[in-house]
Amino acid sequence: MSIQAVIFDWAGTTIDYGSRAPIVAFQKAFSNVGIDITEAEIRQDMGLDKYTHIHKIINLPAVQNDWQARFQVLPSNDDCERIYHDFKSILLASIAEFGELKPGMTDVVTYLTEHNIAYGTTTGYDAEMLALVLPIAAKQGYRPTVNITSAQTNGIGRPAPAMLELASDQLEITDPTTVMKVGDSVNDILEGQNADAITVGVVDGSNLMGLSQDAFATLSDVQQAALRAKVAGQYESVGADYIIESMVELPALIDSINQPVTDH
Rank of each mutant, 00 (worst) to 15 (best):
L134Q: 15
W67K: 08
D169V: 05
V63E: 05
T110L: 09
D204V: 07
S168F: 01
V133G: 04
I3R: 02
F8T: 04
A217E: 14
L208G: 03
W10Y: 15
D16H: 07
V182Q: 07
Y51S: 04
P144T: 10
G233F: 10
P251Y: 11
H53A: 02
D255Y: 05
R143V: 09
A197I: 09
G99E: 02
Q27H: 01
A229M: 09
T199Y: 05
S94M: 11
I244L: 15
N65M: 10
L211D: 03
N194S: 12
I83F: 10
V231G: 05
E236S: 13
E97G: 05
R82G: 04
G12S: 04
F87G: 03
G157M: 05
V108H: 03
N116Q: 13
G201V: 10
A118G: 11
E236K: 15
D45K: 07
S212Y: 10
M1D: 10
A162C: 05
A96Y: 06
G47K: 04
T174D: 10
R143Q: 14
I156F: 05
L74N: 10
D45Q: 07
T145G: 03
L48G: 02
D79T: 11
A93R: 12
T199K: 09
Q259S: 13
L92D: 12
T13N: 09
S168Y: 02
N59T: 09
T110D: 11
G192N: 09
S168A: 15
N32L: 07
A40M: 01
L92N: 15
Q72V: 01
K50S: 02
F216A: 13
L171W: 07
V63G: 01
P61A: 08
T52L: 12
S220I: 06
S237R: 11
N116F: 06
I7P: 03
V109T: 07
T122N: 13
I136T: 09
A127G: 11
M105Y: 00
D126C: 10
Q170T: 03
D66W: 01
I254D: 07
A225F: 04
D9E: 08
L74F: 13
W67L: 08
A252Y: 13
Q27Y: 02
T218W: 07
L208D: 02
G141K: 11
Q72C: 03
S19Y: 00
F8G: 06
T218C: 08
I42N: 02
Q213L: 14
L60N: 06
T110W: 05
D204A: 14
K102W: 00
A229T: 13
H53K: 06
A127D: 15
D204M: 12
V133E: 08
V203M: 14
A197Q: 05
D49E: 14
L171R: 06
Q27I: 01
F30N: 01
A127T: 14
S220N: 13
E128K: 15
H55P: 03
S168G: 12
F216E: 12
A11D: 11
D263F: 15
P22E: 01
N59A: 12
I173C: 04
I42Q: 00
T218A: 10
F8N: 06
I58W: 02
G183V: 09
